[in-house]
Computed example of a mutant assay.
Amino acid sequence: MNLFEKREIPDVYQKIAYADNSKTLYEVDAKDLLEEEKHHMYTVALIPEYLNPVLKKEDQYIQKTYYQNNLGYAIRMKDVINIDSYLKSQFKSNHKVVKRSLTRLESCFNINYKVFFGSITKEEYAFLMSALQEMLVRRFAQRNDEHKKLREWNIILDNTFDQINRKEASLFIIYDGKKPIDISLNYHFDKIIFSAISSYDIDYHKFGVGHVEMIKLVEWCLKDQFELLELGYGDLEYKRRWCNYIYQFKYQVVYNEQSLIIPLLAKIELYKLSVKEFLKEKKVNLVYNNLREKFSANSPKRNETAELTIEKRTITEPDNTEYIAKIDPDSEKYKFLRIVIYEFLYSTVEHKDNTSIFMISESPKSFLIRGKNNAQQITYRN
């Protein structure tokens, strides 16, 4: 997906066009290939089937195109009337559950949304990208894994600020008050939005923040008349449920037939690629991934509350209010309480502003969560 992220195409291509109408999406300055470049072999993978690369010198090259056993996921806006009808068509009887993620989140917190597209300060950019990085680290540590984009984070950080101000990228944010709880980094090309990196604060997981992000991105696409919300490759459940356009990727091998050794290398490359795709077709890669997940599941999880058992008890009023001290769950000292507090808010539909947290002095591992109409005592045990 270098086209979306870096606006780069291999030297052998003159432009990228839409497959259905041949409209040019991206074109480079016309110039001949250097003499040494003419003797290169170009292997290009993950070309969405709705795009066609066009060669600079079509008469000088052999171009072999094959479909990969990789699926891409996107939402075509021409098939979306409004968000409510789209949820019904995609989620059927579960559409109310998905919509509830939005209504419940907005009922329990001071939620607001913002898009940085065309203008962002360096201070705001640094703050938001740091928050996104922290969300990715924390969320994937919970899964005992690492997001691959974290390995190139400094490169992303260096490039994206200017891309946002040039309207080549955007940051979509869901805030709880002034705190970002979901961030999506998107790249823009023509009428396509590519949702490249997104994450959320796992303390809010009960609220289905990922669904809320998708609802708001679809609404943005409809409002500003984007034609495609691209979610890229990777067979994930949320993509299958959200996307109305599932397509295959292509790969191409391009080489100069007049070169002495390149045609032989191209045949070897094509053979290697065909074997790789055959193994994918036979699901060998899924066997590997399942084994990796199995071993990962047996290894220790970096869960912040894994060593604690939480007991919950619904109550009307504390027995001895004089033994209760009010605490601030937003402080660093008590941040471990947030996920339990937010689960209480979700189940009772209490608002965070109307909820107080108390530590029961005679039992320092017991806390009282008291909302406007509901209360719950929680006790941590080793």
Rank of each mutant, 00 (worst) to 15 (best):
E230S: 02
G232P: 11
G232C: 11
D235Q: 15
L236D: 15
Y238N: 09
K239V: 04
R241H: 12
W242G: 04
C243K: 14
N244R: 03
Y245E: 14
Y247G: 10
Y247Q: 01
Q248S: 12
F249E: 06
F249M: 06
Q252A: 13
V253P: 03
V253I: 14
V254L: 07
N256V: 05
N256D: 15
N256M: 03
Q258R: 14
S259P: 05
L260C: 10
I261C: 08
I261H: 06
K267Y: 06
I268M: 05
L270A: 11
L270C: 07
L270N: 12
K272M: 02
K272P: 00
K272N: 09
L273G: 04
S274W: 00
S274Y: 02
V275H: 02
K280E: 02
K280A: 00
K280I: 00
E281D: 06
E281P: 00
E281R: 10
K283W: 05
L286V: 11
Y288P: 00
N289Q: 13
N290K: 13
L291V: 05
K294L: 09
K294A: 09
S296C: 08
A297G: 02
A297F: 02
K301C: 03
R302I: 07
N303G: 15
E304L: 08
T305I: 09
E307D: 10
E307P: 00
L308M: 14
I310H: 04
I310G: 05
K312P: 00
K312Y: 04
T314F: 01
T316I: 07
E317Q: 07
